[in-house]
């Protein structure tokens, strides 16, 4: 993917992500806090591997790291990405460099390594199993 498209896409994702977290922050304080948009959960009744990430991010913003871990550990990488990536991209755009693009390409080829892909898959499956068990 060309650099410009990637940067626009990630900035768009970050904007959508922040809007989503803020929306949920206000919804959780209302009488109807459930906003179940997960297609997989609605179709099967089973939570998907990343269900609970929004709640985990909201817990992280309040400093409740333990609660965030219980909700979904994937909230930590997502929160980190939401904080770091847009800033990194903006710095790149201002300085007219492509350090984030190089990082992205490197991360992609790292994730394609067999042992990394298999470890990630096992971790995700275990986390998913736990997610189903918690919500079961």
């Amino acid at each position: 993917m060309p650099k410009k498209n990637l940067y626009l896409l990630i900035l768009g994702f970050a904007l959508a992500g922040y809007s989503w977290v803020i929306l949920n922050h206000y919804l959780l304080n209302t009488n109807n806090p459930t906003l179940n948009v997960c297609l997989f959960r609605q179709a099967t009744g089973i939570p998907c591997p990343s269900c609970g990430t929004t709640h985990a991010i909201l817990s992280i913003t309040k400093g409740n790291f333990r609660q965030a871990m219980e909700e979904n550990i994937l909230g930590f990488p997502v929160a980190l990405m939401l904080v770091i990536f847009p800033v990194w991209i903006l710095i790149d755009l201002i300085r007219k460099k492509e350090s984030f693009y190089q990082f992205y390409l490197g991360a992609e080829s790292f994730l394609r390594k067999k042992w990394v892909a298999w470890s990630a898959l096992v971790f995700l499956l275990v986390n998913w199993g736990w997610n189903i068990f918690k919500n079961g």
């Binding site: 993917m1 997960c38 297609l39 591997p49 997502v78 994730l111």
Partner: peptide, 19 residues
Amino acid sequence: DTGLGVAKLLTCGGLGIWT
């Protein structure tokens, strides 16, 4: 598209919209 795959996985398929 590994990077986008990870993004899709971590966001419940982009809240279902991206799916």
